[in-house]
Amino acid sequence: MLPPDGDAANRFQPLRPGLVRLAYRMLGSVAEAEDVVQEAYIRWHQTDRSAVREPGAFLSKTVTRLCLDILKSARVKRETYIGPWLPEPVLDTDGAEDRAEDLSLTLMMALERLSPLERAAFLLHDVFGLGFDEVAATLDRDPAACRQLAARARKNVRAERPRYAIEREEGERMTDAFLAASRSGDLSGLRNLLAENVVAYTDGGGIRNAALNPLFGFRRVAGLFLGVARKSAGQLPPVLYKGPINGLPGFVTLEQDGMVQTTALDIEGGRIVGVYIVRNPEKLRHLADLAN
């Protein structure tokens, strides 16, 4: 006989935030992560929970396998995606800076380049601390194979991890300076902020205007913001939020078309080396309340 319904919810809810974090890192989508965790709860509800010794391990396995199923079709979708693909932005509104490293956009983009099994092995072991025996049980592989998967993944993502954590105050100062220079069309100010090898990614998903390819180098990136400043004719979009976005300093604006946009800044050595702009409205639905 199944335990009572209240037991299912009481044992599931404390594990839910970690399961959402796992699913989001696997999929790069807030909405899909929430859907996966909801499906995991339904399966948990239907399971003979008295036979489950470790609910956390059971649910992590369920979420991972559901994510792997989605990633099989997601690969096809990403191959036909219009323009650069960026993960859905997640705002740090609770000050949990200890999550910055495994949330960063650079790391999330590195994960995107891995195979689904490599991504799962790396996340389960390196980020969520599962032993390789548990990883093996989740992926239906032997522990030695999971070690190899994680090692290959680790090698590919190591270069993308931040070399040092930028102080929050420094991130805020750079964000304010970038906002001022980019919105006013201040070329001198941008030159003082942007690295020569800066890269800008704009993800419009073919729905809103965005560059179809990453922009490399100071001249092209500065030209993007100078052009936007000229077109705005002094009508600056309101800033709805300033703070960490996927572990990077950033801000959210309400653009002239009435939709929100997120901008995150990757900073190294006092210079901005990466600008990540998400404009695709399908990736910004969870931020709609900011505009109200």
Rank of each mutant, 00 (worst) to 15 (best):
S188T: 09
G189K: 01
L190D: 03
L190W: 02
A195Q: 04
A195E: 07
A195H: 07
A195V: 02
E196L: 06
E196S: 12
E196P: 00
N197E: 14
V198A: 01
Y201T: 02
Y201L: 06
T202H: 03
D203H: 03
G205D: 00
G206M: 01
I207L: 09
R208A: 12
N209T: 11
N209W: 13
A210Y: 01
A210H: 01
A210T: 05
A210D: 01
A210I: 08
A210Q: 02
A211K: 08
L212M: 10
L212W: 03
N213V: 11
N213F: 13
N213Q: 15
L215A: 12
F216S: 07
G217K: 08
G217I: 03
F218L: 15
F218S: 09
R219N: 15
R219M: 14
R219C: 10
R219L: 15
R219A: 15
R220S: 09
R220D: 12
A222S: 15
A222E: 12
L224R: 06
G227E: 02
V228S: 03
K231W: 10
K231R: 14
S232C: 06
S232R: 15
S232M: 15
A233G: 05
A233Y: 10
G234K: 04
G234M: 08
G234H: 07
G234Y: 07
Q235N: 13
L236W: 15
L236Y: 13
P237N: 07
P237Y: 10
P237Q: 08
P237D: 05
P238E: 04
V239R: 03
V239H: 01
Y241K: 07
Y241I: 09
Y241Q: 08
G243C: 08
P244F: 11
P244I: 08
P244N: 14
I245Y: 00
N246D: 13
N246M: 09
G247A: 12
G247M: 09
L248Y: 03
L248T: 08
L248N: 06
L248A: 12
P249M: 12
G250A: 13
G250D: 07
G250W: 04
F251G: 06
V252L: 10
T253G: 10
L254P: 08
L254Q: 11
E255F: 13
E255W: 10
E255A: 14
E255Y: 12
Q256G: 12
Q256Y: 09
G258T: 10
G258W: 12
V260S: 10
V260R: 11
V260N: 13
Q261V: 13
Q261T: 14
T262A: 11
T262D: 08
T262E: 08
T262K: 06
T263A: 12
A264N: 04
A264D: 05
A264R: 03
L265S: 07
L265G: 06
D266Y: 11
D266A: 11
G269A: 04
G269F: 01
G270W: 04
G270H: 05
R271N: 07
R271L: 11
I272P: 01
V273F: 00
V273E: 07
G274W: 00
V275E: 02
V275C: 04
V275A: 05
Y276V: 13
Y276M: 14
I277R: 05
I277P: 00
I277H: 00
I277D: 03
I277G: 04
I277K: 04
V278K: 01
